[in-house]
């Protein structure tokens, strides 16, 4: 049974991996943009900061599964022209919005953890705010939040299965589920679990190593 189902599940898992990579890239960019907005201090940017805060509060507050349902079924139901209706795109967007909110907070924690003296020193040598951010603040911030960022990677990698509720064909969990349901044998689900572990365990070891390097607790 395992031998039979494994190739199907593995092929479907390859779809999951590609999906993960695309969503992760969007998450990293979105999260950073939101974090940068939230760490600004200029009074003129208050409305944008408020918007970013609202985004984080809302999307971090809604269970990811519920968000996948809301966006995956809700957007097509609006029947507005110009909006995507593909379950893959909408499911991916839902995951990106949800994880973008989490990751923005991770970035923000890193940015505010960089000592104020670093920004002062960067400005004192004549850098603009943007250059100070690019060359001094962000490199230090990102290094510090490597482990928690990778943690969110692992979590996202697993949560890709949530888009199966939208009926996305070819998703690993979905394929395994259908295989399993056809003859009440759960071996295909084990095959899917193994696929996930093959990615998440190495990632976890990388997190450990990074945590040690940055004085974290893991070993």
């Amino acid at each position: 049974m395992f031998k039979q189902s494994f190739p199907d599940v593995l092929e479907a898992f390859w779809f999951d991996v590609r999906m993960f990579v695309v969503v992760e890239v969007v998450v990293l960019v979105l999260g950073l943009a939101v974090a940068l907005v939230r760490t600004t201090t200029a009074p003129a940017l208050f409305p944008v900061r408020l918007l970013a805060l609202g985004y984080v509060d809302v999307f971090r507050g809604i269970p990811t599964l519920l968000l996948v349902y809301l966006i995956g079924f809700g957007i097509p139901a609006l029947e507005l022209s110009g909006l995507p209706t593909s379950a893959v795109v909408l499911g991916g967007a839902a995951l990106a919005l949800s994880y973008g909110a989490y990751v923005s907070e991770v970035y923000r924690a890193g940015i505010v953890s960089v000592h104020r003296g670093q920004r002062d020193a960067a400005r004192a040598i004549g850098l603009t705010e943007g250059q100070a951010l690019r060359h001094v603040i962000l490199p230090q911030a990102v290094r510090r939040v490597g482990p928690p960022l990778l943690n969110d990677f692992i979590s996202l990698q697993k949560d890709i299965v949530l888009i199966s509720v939208l009926g996305v064909a070819g998703e690993a969990f979905r394929v395994a589920q259908i295989d399993a349901a056809s003859d009440f044998n759960y071996t295909p689900l084990i095959a899917a679990a193994i696929c996930f572990l093959a990615i998440t365990i190495p990632l976890a070891r990388i997190v450990d190593r990074l945590s040690v390097g940055t004085g974290g607790v893991a070993r």
Binding site: H115, G117, A121, A122, P139
Partner: peptide, 12 residues
């Protein structure tokens, strides 16, 4: 040019 009490060199 400004030199700080705590050096504030860029550690990275």
């Amino acid at each position: 040019g400004l030199v700080f009490q705590a050096y504030n060199l860029f550690p990275h």
